[in-house]
Design a protein around this nucleic acid. Sequence first.
DNA 1: AACAAAGAACGAAACGGTTCGCTTTGCACA
DNA 2: TGTGCAAAGCGAACCGTTTCGTTCTTTGTT
Lengths: 334, 334
Amino acid sequence: MPATIRDIRRMTGLSVATISKYLNGGNVLPENRTKLEAAIRELHYEVNELARGLVTNRTRTVGVLVYSIESLFNGTLLRYLGEALRRLGYGVLICDSCEDEEVEAQSLRFLVNKKVDGIIVVPVSHRSDFLQPAREAGVPVVLMDRSLDDEEHDCVKIDNRMAAFRAMRLLLENGHRKIAVICSACEYTGVERCKGFLDAMEQAGLPVPDAYRRCGRHAMEYGYQSMKELLRLEDVPTAVFMTNYEITLGAVMAVKETTYRCPDDISMLGFDDLILSQVVEPKMYMVVQPMKEMSERAVELLMQRIRGREAEEPPVEILLSTRIQEGNSIRRLA
Amino acid sequence: MPATIRDIRRMTGLSVATISKYLNGGNVLPENRTKLEAAIRELHYEVNELARGLVTNRTRTVGVLVYSIESLFNGTLLRYLGEALRRLGYGVLICDSCEDEEVEAQSLRFLVNKKVDGIIVVPVSHRSDFLQPAREAGVPVVLMDRSLDDEEHDCVKIDNRMAAFRAMRLLLENGHRKIAVICSACEYTGVERCKGFLDAMEQAGLPVPDAYRRCGRHAMEYGYQSMKELLRLEDVPTAVFMTNYEITLGAVMAVKETTYRCPDDISMLGFDDLILSQVVEPKMYMVVQPMKEMSERAVELLMQRIRGREAEEPPVEILLSTRIQEGNSIRRLA
DNA sequence: AACAAAGAACGAAACGGTTCGCTTTGCACA
DNA sequence: TGTGCAAAGCGAACCGTTTCGTTCTTTGTT
């Protein structure tokens, strides 16, 4: 049974109110301060956050809910978010949606029940219904990376469509015409990036055969399979654009197992520069998202909502720009 | 401002005590039950877990603290743990130690403050000091994957040394003599597995040149670099044993970039079968840990401690056995 | 019909803090 | 020496639950 404020009262003779004041940074007489410090040390006193939260309705804790804890992208995001939040003195409470809308809704309620001061979500659901409990409880929510159907939320992300469009220019400028895409069809970012790909191809007046358009799961296996199949086509593309990290990783491995060589036989442009490009030969051209900045901006935005900024103010959408990590994976065609 | 029990009292005319009883599964008259259900629905009432926790000192929440949220191994563990805990009706609170002992200690205190009922830790620290706050608060702790210096804790893991030793037999039985190891030197599992490697070599009466013993960081880059260097040696080993997932991944990529072919020129035996082996050619021989079982046993053990089993009972160490995932990455030597 | 026993409902006291409004203290100044 | 004022301290109410001991109601028994 841990010590309480009342134990400290017994030891110091001060009133509960004064002790509480001290604990929250208020002024007390130097003499009392030393008494308090001694008592706290001696009793190993620590504030009971449950009790404090009960009356203040604040916990100095924010929840982060990601669609899958197994995704490396989220892992990296979580690290940056954690660092930023800890720096501000906030505790972090991570929850995993397990790629399941049901679990996501449940986890969100869990976080709201824990009385977190705010929530950052990388959603699995496309609809915003599951956020309802947070809205009702007045807990601010900031989305990251993925939007929801209704745009009525604070959100920090990149302009996926434009990023893909711009990246494609790199392939086009290098003379590529037969370009395939491997993307994930089941989530916001994949769909947007695929649109960007198609925009670029259309603007360049290039047709995209069905066989060049591989839209499937967001998974290493899918990238691997797709790349293998592309290389088995009668008319093999000269370049492939891959729209996320897992798919890129699978595709790279697939190529390495064939007699095709990158960039000589096949050019590659990937997405999300995580550990991969530091390691692989040839160095990959990559669209890289400013993950650290993304995290910091999300935290910043959330903090504004938490302290003060009225919930009525219209939602803010922050679009960050990507950059292209140079590499040797793209060949210049005649 | 969410509805409270008192709002329900106002609406139903029942006493607070009765309502609480109902909420906790107690018996009430059928007539009152329907009244309560209606009121709860209408008011969107949800129990305030803070208030409940304050008086019960239980939260039906367990904390999981991992050394790094970015590690795929931990990601997978977290998913299994989450599933098992949710199944039992427990909320899960994930924390990241960021590979930093300071942050680890702080996060542990955070979890204890949140009054979690128990904590599962994959530690970064080697000493058990940082667990002190949990011990004082009487919060049970179960370690996973890694032990601490003093063995006075419940722990679920594999017998790393033995697993490595057994795995090595596979290489030896296939006639390999010149075997190198790439392992992480800075953490429990890496060290143990390296010992197992050395045991096997010693028992077989084989020397291990320094150049064949690459003990460094637990990172993909390290595996990559090390494998490259091994293949550049004058006397290239015929087989390489890699003691964790990240290192294995890096090593595989390194080989694929050279003219060496696995298993013809170099045999490989890796550790931790995550997505890698489903994707890579040739299929890798892998030591696989029963990660799901590990998670479930850890949860089981924790539950025993949480409900009843006295803290005085001696710590339990559960050693799970590994198995070898067959592949084609090992060549039989004459 | 009287009474015991079981089952529900109840009021009030916790749990461990914060905070409001009031009292006391200490000190500068006239 | 008396006055006024700010700073520090204090008691008590409150946050939203659970739980304990008691009272009320119902049912079954003789």
